[in-house]
Lab assay of single mutants.
Amino acid sequence: TGIVNVSSSLNVRSSASTSSKVIGSLSGNTKVTIVGEEGAFYKIEYKGSHGYVAAEYI
């Protein structure tokens, strides 16, 4: 489990890349469940599926 540490919002992406499609966003202080790690990204549970967020902001 981690907490989103941004002042505005954090993009949730379809894969572990900044060039991948943005599938949603999370606001600051949102609690997320981390299920894996790929490079600089965490794989998280997101809306019944999975998404990827930049690990530096969690």
Score class of each variant (00 low, 15 high):
Thr1Val: 13
Thr1Met: 12
Thr1Arg: 10
Thr1Glu: 11
Gly2Ala: 08
Gly2Ser: 05
Ile3Gln: 06
Ile3Leu: 10
Val4His: 04
Asn5Val: 12
Asn5Gly: 06
Asn5Met: 13
Asn5Phe: 07
Asn5Gln: 08
Asn5Thr: 11
Asn5Lys: 12
Asn5Pro: 04
Asn5Asp: 06
Val6Phe: 08
Val6Glu: 06
Val6Tyr: 07
Val6Thr: 13
Val6Ile: 13
Val6Lys: 12
Val6Leu: 09
Ser7Trp: 07
Ser7Phe: 08
Ser7Ile: 11
Ser7Pro: 11
Ser8Leu: 10
Ser8Tyr: 11
Ser8Met: 12
Ser9Lys: 12
Ser9Arg: 13
Leu10Gln: 05
Leu10Arg: 03
Leu10Met: 06
Asn11Val: 15
Asn11Cys: 15
Asn11Ile: 15
Asn11Gly: 08
Asn11Lys: 14
Asn11Arg: 13
Asn11Glu: 15
Val12Asp: 02
Val12Pro: 01
Val12Arg: 01
Arg13Gly: 04
Arg13Lys: 06
Ser15Cys: 11
Ser15Arg: 11
Ser15Asp: 10
Ser15His: 14
Ser15Gln: 12
Ala16Phe: 03
Ala16Lys: 03
Ala16Ser: 07
Ala16Gly: 06
Ala16Met: 04
Ala16Pro: 14
Ser17Arg: 07
Ser17Phe: 05
Thr18Lys: 13
Thr18Ser: 14
Thr18Leu: 14
Thr18Ile: 13
Ser19Phe: 08
Ser19Trp: 07
Ser19His: 12
Ser20Ile: 02
Ser20Arg: 04
Lys21Glu: 12
Lys21Ile: 10
Lys21Asp: 12
Val22Gln: 04
Val22Met: 05
Val22Glu: 03
Val22Gly: 02
Val22Cys: 08
Gly24His: 02
Gly24Ile: 04
Gly24Asp: 02
Ser25Arg: 14
Leu26Gly: 00
Leu26Thr: 01
Leu26Ala: 02
Leu26Tyr: 02
Leu26Phe: 04
Leu26Trp: 02
Ser27Asp: 11
Ser27Thr: 12
Ser27Leu: 13
Gly28Tyr: 13
Gly28Leu: 10
Gly28Val: 10
Gly28Ile: 10
Gly28Lys: 14
Asn29Glu: 07
Asn29Gly: 15
Asn29Trp: 14
Asn29Ser: 09
Thr30Asn: 05
Thr30Gln: 11
Lys31Arg: 14
Lys31His: 11
Val32Gly: 01
Val32Ala: 01
Thr33Arg: 11
Thr33Cys: 15
Thr33Phe: 10
Ile34Asp: 00
Ile34Phe: 03
Ile34Gly: 00
Ile34Asn: 00
Val35Ala: 05
Val35Arg: 04
Val35Leu: 15
Val35Ile: 14
Gly36Gln: 06
Gly36Glu: 06
Glu37Gln: 15
Glu38His: 08
Glu38Ile: 09
Gly39Thr: 03
Gly39Lys: 06
Ala40Gln: 11
Ala40Glu: 14
Ala40Pro: 14
Phe41Cys: 05
Phe41Ser: 03
Phe41Val: 02
Phe41His: 04
Tyr42Ser: 03
Tyr42Gln: 03
Tyr42Gly: 03
Tyr42Asn: 03
Tyr42Asp: 03
Lys43Thr: 04
Lys43Glu: 07
Lys43Asn: 03
Ile44Thr: 01
Ile44Arg: 00
Ile44Met: 01
Ile44Cys: 05
Ile44Gln: 01
Ile44Trp: 00
Glu45Phe: 08
Glu45His: 07
Glu45Asn: 07
Glu45Arg: 07
Tyr46Leu: 03
Lys47Trp: 07
Lys47Ile: 06
Gly48Arg: 04
Gly48Ala: 06
Gly48Pro: 03
Ser49Asn: 09
His50Ile: 14
Gly51Ala: 09
Gly51Leu: 02
Tyr52Lys: 00
Tyr52Asp: 00
Tyr52Cys: 02
Ala54Trp: 15
Ala54Gln: 15
Ala54Asn: 10
Ala54Thr: 08
Ala54Asp: 11
Ala54Tyr: 13
Ala55Gln: 14
Ala55Thr: 10
Ala55Gly: 05
Glu56Leu: 10
Glu56His: 09
Tyr57Met: 08
Tyr57Arg: 06
Tyr57His: 11
Tyr57Gln: 07
Tyr57Ser: 09
Ile58Val: 10
Ile58Gln: 01
Ile58Leu: 06
Ile58Trp: 03
